[in-house]
Each structure stands twice: as structure tokens, then as C-alpha cells.
Design a protein around this nucleic acid. Structure first.
Lengths: 140, 140
DNA sequence: TTCAGTGCAAACGATTTGCACCGTA
DNA sequence: TACGGTGCAAATCGTTTGCACTGAA
């Protein structure tokens, strides 16, 4: 139900693939999923959706401001719900673990720097790379 | 001459392709070059180096801490000399213009956030996207 | 009914790799 | 001379696209 409203609001026809993909992403709010991840999840659920459609739908959702695309390192794009709100990311280079944080001081500095350089701020990307506690404990 | 020392210091045999590629990058300190850019520059100079070698050499330079790789948006990697020192980037989404800045406040916050989350800070990436003055003036 | 949406396979662009030859140390 | 380095072409990987078919409004 909820998905249908979101889709209509975005001017997207309510189709099975779109509803299913949105369901999957909304049911994994802590997981930054790639197109491949979503595709596999669909297969797991027995839903028959082509990989090309997953890519198309994710791109449409990004354009509709339902999802935000991130690159991190490693070539592949990952997506997360915009409704989760503003935040940046910490990525563990050993485990791939992704954590989120929100820092007003940084946001303020970013806005100030953009202005100083004569840029109309559109967006910014901040990713902190490091080795998480978990990864360190495993090593011992 | 200088290039030869840099290469030896990095444990890399001093070969023609490596010297030439390093020369090109050092002679364009304000240009964030892609593998393709370097390759074309080599062709312009009449040097016959394969694109595969450019990729291999750039990757080796990255591993040797001579270059830093950035992704920005658009899929392709660009490289710049590490010897230029610490800085982050502003990228104009209209023109592709790249400017650099250095902000101690942000660096301090990044370190603090990593620590709070139990991450050993390895690196971070901050890119501010916006529309530069130049792009705005063109539009008028 | 109609046209946007979809599945499939082929096309793509950036990057990597296998292999035989070449040039530094 | 020996072995790492190189050029070329083929292979990969994530992603996009052409086309005929399908299903939501």
C-alpha cells in the first residue's frame, strides 16, 4: 500500500517490479544494496525480474528522490532510502561494514567552503575509510 | 633525473614508459588526469606506449604512494600527485572544473568521528559538488 | 486499447589479464 | 643473460540499450 503511494507520488506507474524492488529496499533499511544484491534478493523470493529492469528501476528511483546512489570504493553503485535522512558514511576496508553518522559542524564547513569558492552547493560526498573494531578483533 | 630517483625509491625499475608517464603527470600539476588523458598526452608527444601499460603504471604509482586515485562522479578514475599534499575537492557538475581546498576543522571532525565509531582511520574522501561561478556566468 | 514498462541478449566503456616479445640491471 | 616490463588483443565487470512483447490504466 505504502509503496503504491510513493510510486504514484513520483509519477511512476505502479508495476510489479517497481513495487517488489521498493519492498526489498524498505525491508533492509540498514543494508546499502547494489543492483546485483537487489536482483539476488528478488530471485530468493521467487520473483522473476530481469537484472536490466533492476538497473532501470533503481535509476528511476534515484531520479525521483526515493533513493540516493553512493559509489564507495569498488566500482559498483549502492543505494539507500533518502527517507532515512541526511548522513555520511564510515566504511570498514576489511569487512565492508558501513556505518552512518551525522555531523553538523562538517555540513556547515562544507557550505562555507562552497560559498568561498563561488560554488552553488548541490551535494557533497564524505566517506571515512578505516578498520573497524570488529575487524581488529578478528585479527587477534 | 628526478623521476629516476622517485622510481628507484619506490622499488620500480626505471623504464621508458614509467619515466614518461611520471613526467606528464608532474608537468600538469593542476590537472586531475585519467588513464585515457595520460595515454592521449603520450600519443601527442609521439611516445608509443600502450593503454594497458598506462593503467598498470598508474596502479603501481598508486601503490607506491606517488599518486592518489579519485573517483568523483562518472565512473572513470583520475590521478594526482601525492606530493601536492593533503586537500579535498570541489567539482563543478556543469563544467567538470576541479578546485582544491584544505580545511583543518573538517579533518579534525573526521578523526574524531572515526574514533567515536571504533575505526582506525585509514583515509577519507570528501568531494563537494556544485555549480561554479563560471558555469553560472555562461548561462546568462 | 494504448503506450509505458519489461525481459532478453547484445552493446558498452573502463579496466584487467594472458601471452609472447623486449629492454633494463 | 635473466627476469621484470611491455604491447596487443581478448577477457571481465558493472551497467546500458535495442527490440519485440506484455500488462497497467
Amino acid at each position: 500500500m505504502l509503496e503504491q503511494n510513493e510510486l504514484k507520488k513520483a509519477g511512476l506507474k505502479v508495476t510489479l517490479p517497481r513495487v517488489k524492488i521498493l519492498e526489498i529496499i524498505e525491508s533492509n533499511p540498514d543494508w546499502h544494496m547494489s543492483a546485483e544484491d537487489v536482483y539476488k534478493e528478488l530471485l530468493n523470493r521467487g520473483d522473476d525480474v530481469g537484472l536490466a529492469t533492476v538497473y532501470r528501476v533503481l535509476t528511476q528511483f534515484e531520479a525521483a528522490d526515493i533513493l540516493k546512489r553512493h559509489q564507495f570504493e569498488g566500482g559498483k553503485s549502492v543505494f539507500e532510502l533518502i527517507s532515512k535522512g541526511d548522513h555520511d558514511h564510515l566504511v570498514c576496508i576489511k569487512t565492508g561494514l558501513v556505518e552512518e553518522f551525522h555531523d553538523p559542524v562538517i555540513q556547515e564547513r562544507v557550505a562555507a567552503i562552497a560559498e568561498q569558492h563561488g560554488f552553488d552547493l548541490t551535494d557533497y560526498s564524505l566517506v571515512i575509510y578505516g578498520i573497524s573494531d570488529q575487524a581488529k578483533n578478528k585479527k587477534k
